[in-house]
Computed example of a mutant assay.
Amino acid sequence: MNFFGIGLPEMVLILVVALLVFGPKKLPEIGRSMGKAIRSFQDASKEFENEFKREADKLTETTPQPMEATLEEKPTLAPAEQDQDTEEPITATTIEKE
């Protein structure tokens, strides 16, 4: 029996210390309140899980088919109109050191 990494001898030691600290009359009341707290935590986690599943189902109902991605054709560029009178050709020149 292993709860949260605590073995049986450690559990017995914890219960004996709790019995000495709280007394035999208070110990059952503490156990009941801890049980109720654990139960409410379990109920809250189940409610959260159910709400999450409902929202996921609602999303799948609104989008019945998956979205499809398509590639568009690349636009073809028209040849540039060059006016030979206004443009001068670019030439490379070398710079000489003195």
Rank of each mutant, 00 (worst) to 15 (best):
L71S: 11
N2T: 13
I30M: 04
K26I: 02
T62S: 09
G7F: 03
S45W: 08
Q84H: 11
F41A: 14
Q82P: 03
V12I: 15
T70Y: 08
P79F: 01
G35F: 09
T60G: 04
I6E: 12
G35N: 08
T86G: 01
G35P: 00
A80I: 05
P89Y: 10
A92H: 07
A37T: 09
E51A: 14
P9S: 06
E88N: 13
P9T: 05
L13H: 11
I38S: 13
Q65I: 04
L19I: 00
T76S: 12
K46W: 04
K25N: 03
F3Q: 05
E10S: 07
Q42S: 10
M67C: 07
E29H: 03
L27S: 00
T91W: 03
E29M: 05
T62F: 10
T63G: 00
S33E: 11
L71C: 05
N2P: 05
M1H: 13
K36E: 12
E51S: 14
F52G: 04
L59N: 12
M1C: 08
A69P: 00
P9A: 08
R39W: 06
K53I: 13
E73M: 13
K46I: 06
E47K: 13
K74Q: 09
E51W: 04
T62C: 10
T70M: 06
M1Y: 10
K36T: 04
T86Y: 03
M11Q: 11
E73W: 01
E88A: 06
E73T: 14
A80S: 12
I95F: 10
L13P: 00
L27M: 07
S45G: 04
G23R: 00
L20N: 03
F22T: 01
D43N: 09
D83N: 15
F4R: 15
N50T: 07
V16S: 02
F3Y: 10
E88Y: 09
A56H: 09
S40C: 05
P9L: 07
E51K: 15
I14G: 00
N50A: 15
E98N: 14
R54M: 08
E55C: 07
V21P: 00
I6H: 08
V17Y: 02
M11S: 11
K58C: 06
